[in-house]
């Protein structure tokens, strides 16, 4: 048995749990350099084992049947990896902010969801290995991670804004969130980036259908997956462009609401995709 094979989901999930516990401790225990170092150490260890796990499993699956990352299981774990990597980057951007308290539950939720559905829900090999499927899957994966990230920034903005309005800053103690300006900027950026990635995912999904059909251009708009994807994409375009053009909608609170609604749309769409068996080889 080689060493990457020994790495299990428990390894990195446990590391992220430790990081989350350390993040939660800041609310009760004063800052300490030792604790921050341990936190960063566990975050790096978790991300490293997560990376090795994904690479190893992807290689094995590719050799056997097809792209392992195309399954719900791999897709969830890859999404969690993107968010964990974003967390590590954010730790260094905002060293003393408790971003992990908001972001790590999403990471752990995705890992939990992936483990729950299991790896048997594979995409069919024919669809996985087409270039459009690859682009479709990767773009949707990144877009989903960015929407989740935007959701986290939006939630943080609303909590922080509410606290500032109620004038209870010192009650927060160690729970110091990034500035409203920073949260708003990153929520806006995530809105734009998610529109781009989900747009690419949507268009490549259509292109995949077109190339796979011998009877001409047929887009099954009646399929709930297609129209919910179109609605989500449309919403993100509207929200991104609208917030750029119409200045009052750049009000931080409105941006936060836009990213929250985007996240709800995404959850709804993923739910529909799951129920109609889109990703498990069903139609379309």
């Amino acid at each position: 048995m080689n060493w990457p094979e020994k790495i299990s989901i428990t390894c990195f999930a446990a590391s992220y749990l430790v990081v989350l516990a350390i993040e939660l401790m800041r609310m009760y225990i004063p800052r300490s350099a030792v604790r921050s170092t341990i936190k960063i150490g566990f975050a790096i260890a978790g991300l490293f084992s997560h990376t090795v796990y994904l690479f190893y499993r992807a290689n094995v699956s590719f050799d056997q049947s097809g792209l392992w990352l195309g399954s719900w299981f791999g897709w969830s774990l890859a999404g969690a990896w993107l968010l964990a990597a974003a967390y590590l980057w954010l730790i260094f951007q905002k060293f003393n902010s408790p971003i992990g308290i908001f972001l790590l539950p999403v990471v752990l939720g995705l890992i939990g969801w992936g483990s729950y559905v299991g790896s048997e829900t594979q995409f069919s090999a024919v669809r996985e290995k087409s270039i459009w499927s690859m682009v479709h899957g990767v773009a949707l994966l990144i877009g989903t991670a960015v929407v989740a990230l935007g959701f986290v920034f939006g939630v943080m903005y609303l909590i922080h804004s509410r606290r500032l309005k109620s004038k209870s800053i010192s009650k927060s103690g160690q729970f110091r969130l990034p500035s409203l300006e920073w949260l708003q900027r990153y929520a806006e950026r995530s809105l734009l980036a998610s529109a781009c990635f989900l747009g690419i995912g949507f268009v490549s999904g259509i292109a995949r259908n077109l190339t796979g059909t011998s009877s001409g251009i047929v887009i099954p708009w009646q399929n709930p997956v297609i129209w919910t994807s179109a609605v989500l994409f449309g919403w993100l375009i509207f929200a991104s462009i609208g917030s750029r053009i119409y200045q009052p909608s750049r009000n931080g609170r409105k941006v936060a609401m836009l990213v929250l609604v985007s996240f709800l749309f995404l959850v709804l769409e993923l739910g529909i995709v799951w129920w109609v068996g889109h990703a498990t080889g069903g139609e379309p």
């Binding site: 800053i169 500035s179 409203l180 920073w182």
Partner: peptide, 28 residues
């Protein structure tokens, strides 16, 4: 300094206003 919170909170009105509040709203 490290084991207590005695240094953490500012106690004059202008310093609280700028170094605590303004920095919670504006990044720079």
């Amino acid at each position: 300094s490290t084991e207590t919170k005695i240094h953490e909170n500012r106690v004059s009105v202008p310093s609280v206003a700028i170094n605590v509040l303004a920095k919670q709203i504006f990044e720079r």
